[in-house]
Amino acid sequence: HHGSGALAALHADGPHAGLPVTRSDARVLIFNDWEERKRSEPWLRLDMSDKAIFRRYPHLR
């Protein structure tokens, strides 16, 4: 199991509170979210491209 239990660094406060600090933090969040959702949506594709990251977390651009 590759990303399970990996912890992402999140901004503690300010405008980005609760959001990932780096792209690799964002990838951890996206992976964990996908892993949760694919139980009920097995067709869901995992997209951890930069484009997917920016779409979801525009502050990382």
Rank of each mutant, 00 (worst) to 15 (best):
H1C: 13
H2F: 14
G3L: 14
G3P: 09
G3H: 11
S4L: 09
S4T: 13
G5T: 11
G5Q: 15
G5S: 11
G5F: 11
A6F: 14
A6D: 10
A6Y: 14
L7R: 12
L7K: 10
L7N: 08
A8I: 07
A8Y: 13
A8M: 05
A9G: 07
A9T: 14
A9Y: 12
L10P: 05
H11L: 07
A12I: 14
G14M: 03
G14T: 04
G14Q: 03
P15Q: 08
P15G: 04
H16L: 15
H16K: 06
H16Q: 06
A17M: 13
A17I: 11
L19D: 05
P20M: 02
P20E: 08
T22F: 03
R23L: 15
R23H: 10
R23G: 06
R23I: 15
R23E: 06
S24P: 04
S24V: 11
D25H: 03
D25E: 08
D25R: 01
R27D: 01
R27W: 04
V28C: 12
V28I: 13
V28Y: 07
V28T: 07
V28Q: 11
L29N: 05
I30F: 13
I30K: 01
F31V: 04
F31P: 00
F31L: 08
N32M: 11
N32G: 07
D33R: 09
W34Q: 00
W34H: 05
W34A: 00
E36W: 09
E36V: 11
R37I: 06
R37S: 04
K38R: 13
K38H: 14
K38N: 10
R39L: 11
S40W: 12
S40T: 14
E41V: 07
E41R: 05
P42N: 03
P42Y: 05
W43I: 03
W43H: 09
W43A: 15
L44F: 10
R45D: 08
M48K: 01
S49P: 00
S49G: 05
S49Q: 04
K51V: 09
K51S: 13
A52F: 06
A52R: 00
I53P: 00
I53V: 14
I53A: 00
I53R: 00
F54T: 08
F54A: 08
R55L: 14
R55N: 15
R55A: 11
R56V: 12
R56M: 08
P58E: 02
P58D: 01
P58M: 02
P58R: 01
L60V: 00
L60C: 00
L60D: 00
R61C: 13
